[in-house]
Design a protein around this nucleic acid. Sequence first.
DNA 1: TATTGTGCCAATACAGTGTATTGCAACAGT
DNA 2: ACTGTTGCAATACACTGTATTGGCACAATA
Lengths: 230, 230
Amino acid sequence: MTVWDRPEPPTRPAPLDRERIVAAAIALADEGGLEAVSLRKVAARLDVGPMRLYGYISTKEELFDLMVDEVHTEIIAEEQPGDWREVLRVRAHRTRRAALRHEWLADLLGGRPALGPNALAAGEAVLAALDGLADIDTVMRAVETVNAYFTGAIRREIANLRAERATGLSVREWQRASGPHLSRMLATGRFPTVAKMVHDGTEVDAEESFATGLDWVLDAVAARLARPPA
Amino acid sequence: MTVWDRPEPPTRPAPLDRERIVAAAIALADEGGLEAVSLRKVAARLDVGPMRLYGYISTKEELFDLMVDEVHTEIIAEEQPGDWREVLRVRAHRTRRAALRHEWLADLLGGRPALGPNALAAGEAVLAALDGLADIDTVMRAVETVNAYFTGAIRREIANLRAERATGLSVREWQRASGPHLSRMLATGRFPTVAKMVHDGTEVDAEESFATGLDWVLDAVAARLARPPA
DNA sequence: TATTGTGCCAATACAGTGTATTGCAACAGT
DNA sequence: ACTGTTGCAATACACTGTATTGGCACAATA
């Protein structure tokens, strides 16, 4: 009767808590997308019955909210000061990076108000950076405009990325290679300008395009914020 | 034995086609949100077995794509010419209106590339309006930037609207009324600027806020497009 | 006309889903 | 020693998207 014969003690699974649950859910989502996240699979990953989870979350949507907030830790990490413009800029880029690391984030972005502690911390950081540059309402609108831009831009980028992955080609390549549907559409001649753009446009780097649009929006914001105190 | 006794002939259900299927799905989604759309319910609404649908669509996602494209008819309707800026502006506003009529649109907006005929027609209209104002890549970036803005803005607006409906109060009212979660968060003092904004900010009309942000973005775009031919 | 093929459609089947309800077993307090 | 109580596991339910099967009406053939 050596140690090796002795059966492992039942290894009480590490005590459950939200953190572990959220981590498991994120892992699943990273691997197989949001649709791969089921309460049963999350529970299984933690060696626990599905209903255990309901002691910590009360609905699947709530789990999603927690996942989103958790990812915000990657966004608020290592904040370097810089002026307001830089703050907005890096926030947008960090969010984009987070979405590239966790593509499912794109499905959730903007889907519900983000009121978790980390999301609030992120919001606090940018609001603090803009505070005082203009009246409150203008500042709010500035932040919301930039947010709207990068939310939309990220979603589109991920959507295209997935489409490319599904067909093996970018939309442009795909249509050039006579991709069945789009080509047929463009061939109808009903969309001449679209056809031209697809045909003649250069394939721009996604990050650069994101950055450019962002800079435009930031310029617009700057025009309203930096207005001299009169 | 009068007509009244005679049983109705089995009233062959109107022949099925994509249009009818999509219409039924949209009706369901309008009533109960996207999650109320199940192939079974769509089929039931058409007095048809669920599997019949697979003769016309090959997956539920495809049905969603068709729904989105169908709504685009409301967006391209009655296009008045106007200059490029007006075209972009009304497109954004029409999309917003469509999303207010069909809230589920917000869940789908930007989620996948919109390649249906109506979406392409919408794209054609705006590209045609911008064609020639700058080099192709700049034009593309302009359109995409505006798209990103209004996609994000619409999503956020609908998200807030739902949250308000769920709690009965706007986020601001809610927190002022000591809404449990957010208030506790703000009371921690960790988010002073957010707290200030929530407390002192005025509640702005959603449409106005949308329009304002949009105008900013359009200004930014204008600065790159209207660049004199040098 | 009888028979065979064929294409369409309904029904059934399967493997999952989120979550409510029930049952049980270990511990706390009397 | 008995009785709550509390925390967890198992079961149960209603539903999902979709693959597979089975039958039935019509077309083509003999």
